[in-house]
């Protein structure tokens, strides 16, 4: 494997890195976004990606590796173009996440942290993703795919592998790739914020009931 990025890539990454570093009072705070940035370039955090971060921040490579290996989202080897997570924390697992995982893993022929041979899809057993009222939950490139079942999960992965367009439940119409997602996480918007609903149906359940019954918060203080 060649050492370092090509001069053109390096120049582009340096420009992005300097912009990120400029957002913080102290440069080292930029390390997590910089790791997202190099992950956006290569689909995982490589040796040269870590070296780049170290150089940008005046750290040793060991200091960078100490950080990158601590956080689950930084991948040690390339993941699929579409990184598929199945929530297996208690609530989702009980509601069917365990069965989804078992069937999906067998269907795709890959296990936890493994990719399909075509490099299209990788699978991960993920922890609670803060969408418990949409259980069982799956994520693809960290977009929400709510209320899944084994059949929908398998269809989703088949569609991803066939290059068909799939749409997250609460997210943009077009699902972006893992690299594109990593770039958004590094702090470079893709202008898709306006896509998708403001909220999913369960998020609105209480509001719906309040409106039906005419319930509101009290009126504001008279003196105010």
């Amino acid at each position: 494997m060649s050492r370092g990025f090509s001069p053109e890539t390096r120049e582009r990454l340096e420009r992005d890195a300097k912009e990120i570093i400029g957002r913080y009072p102290k440069p080292r705070s930029a390390l997590l976004p910089l790791l997202h940035l190099v992950q956006a370039e290569e689909g995982y955090v490589s040796d040269r990606g870590e070296e780049f971060c170290a150089e940008m921040l005046g750290l040793t490579k060991a200091e960078v590796v100490g950080v990158s290996t601590f956080y689950t989202m930084y991948k040690r080897k390339p993941v699929g173009e579409y990184h598929v997570g199945v929530c297996i924390n208690t609530l989702c697992a009980v509601m069917g996440g365990d069965q989804i995982w078992d069937e999906l893993s067998e269907h795709a022929g890959v296990g936890h942290d493994e990719s399909t041979p075509d490099g299209k899809v990788s699978l991960e057993r993920i922890e609670c993703n803060a969408a418990c009222d949409f259980a069982p939950v799956m994520m693809v490139n960290w977009e929400f795919f709510d209320n899944q079942n084994p059949a929908s999960a398998k269809q989703l992965v088949d569609d991803l592998r066939a290059g068909k367009q799939v749409t997250p439940t609460r997210g943009p119409k077009r699902l972006c790739t893992f690299k594109e997602a990593s770039r958004v996480l590094a702090g470079f918007p893709d202008d898709l914020a306006g896509d998708g609903p403001a909220a999913g149906a369960p998020s609105l359940e209480g509001l719906r009931i309040a409106k039906e019954n005419g319930w509101t918060a009290p009126a504001k203080e008279d003196s105010e």
Partner: peptide, 19 residues
């Protein structure tokens, strides 16, 4: 006890996330 939507009050508006 009845519900008191304050933070959730505008969530059913399609542009609730915009200024």
């Amino acid at each position: 006890t009845t519900l008191t939507p304050v933070l959730t009050r505008n969530w059913d508006q399609p542009d609730s996330f915009t200024l």
